[in-house]
């Protein structure tokens, strides 16, 4: 208190004094000096006495009072560690959960979905498949083509490992989808044969060139198949390689690239699935008093 008001006063004094000159300055300095002195007097203490800020004088003449509860140091440390550890674990976990949730929320976008949307394709059994088939379950979508030389087979094998780990270790079942970027060659029959080498639950989707092009565009998948390929022509299709994780509302959650391996990919998916909050609950959270937590 004392220290603070003193320095404030001094500053008040010095500033105008520096600006003015001659008698005026002298007068001001004197007035300032008086103000400072008066302040010391009103506190009734010496200007340089060592009273801690906000502190109270020691009453017990230095004697330490004995507490009624005796506490062993060992127990205290153990309790401290246990409580501290539990709290930090809890807060870290909650923080992580909220972060993942926020990430998903950001990817969901506001209003119009940033990725995904209506599409019309046909599955390898000849059934219609649209964006409505994504509802009610988490889906993982991969774009590729059956004549892919090395990356797609590797990625599909990785997907198989993910699916097995997810269901055996975490009880999570995803709907895995393989959308071809090469509809000219990948007929439902070809897809069926191709995908039989990989995880049995992977569903192959194809369609007309325009339907596939539309689906790829919605998922911002770049691909370059010539639209008019002669039958029997041997060519490759360039395409982007990402797994798209979609939530049970058919909304995009995350894209998993080749940087996710057999283990980290599973961890990421589990994180998203566990932190998923249905739309109704999300709306409630936004209205609740603790909504600032989710901002």
């Amino acid at each position: 208190m004392l220290k603070l008001s003193r320095s404030a006063n001094l500053r008040l004094v010095q500033l105008p004094a520096a600006r003015l000159s001659g008698n005026g300055a002298k007068l001001l300095t004197q007035r300032g000096f008086f103000t400072v002195t008066r302040l010391w007097q009103s506190n009734g203490k010496k200007p340089l006495s060592r009273v801690p800020v906000g502190g109270t004088p020691i009453k017990d003449n230095g004697k330490v009072r004995e507490g009624s509860i005796e506490f062993s140091t060992g127990k205290a440390i153990a309790l401290f560690l246990a409580v501290g550890g539990a709290l930090s674990y809890f807060f870290n976990r909650e923080k992580r959960r909220l972060e993942t949730q926020k990430e998903a929320e950001a990817n969901r976008g506001y209003g119009k979905p940033s990725l995904g949307g209506p599409f019309h394709l046909e599955d390898m059994y000849g059934n219609e498949f649209t964006e409505k088939n994504l509802l009610g379950k988490f889906s993982i979508i991969y774009f590729g083509f059956s004549n892919c030389p090395d990356i797609c087979p590797d990625e599909l094998d990785k997907l198989g490992v993910w699916l097995n780990t997810l269901s055996s270790k975490y009880g999570i079942t995803l709907q895995p989808l393989f959308i071809t970027c090469d509809p000219a060659r990948d007929s439902p029959a070809v897809l069926k044969e191709y995908l039989s080498d990989f995880h049995p639950s992977i569903l192959g989707l194809t369609g007309t060139f325009d339907e596939v092009k539309n689906a790829c565009k919605k998922y911002r998948v770049y691909f370059s198949t010539p639209p008019n390929v002669k039958p029997g022509q041997d060519y490759l299709v360039d395409h982007s390689i990402f797994f798209y994780l979609m939530d049970p509302e058919g909304q995009f959650v995350d894209a998993l690239g080749r940087n996710y391996d057999e283990k980290t990919g599973v961890d990421k998916i589990v994180e998203h699935v566990k932190s998923y909050v249905p739309a109704e609950q999300r709306a409630k959270q936004k209205e609740a008093w603790y909504s600032f937590l989710f901002k």
Binding site: S146, P153, E193, P231
Partner: peptide, 16 residues
């Protein structure tokens, strides 16, 4: 072969 590039695991393995 030219019209149908390897499409099965065993064919891919042979090629690799």
């Amino acid at each position: 072969k030219e019209s149908q590039p390897p499409n099965t695991r065993s064919q891919r393995k042979l090629c690799w």
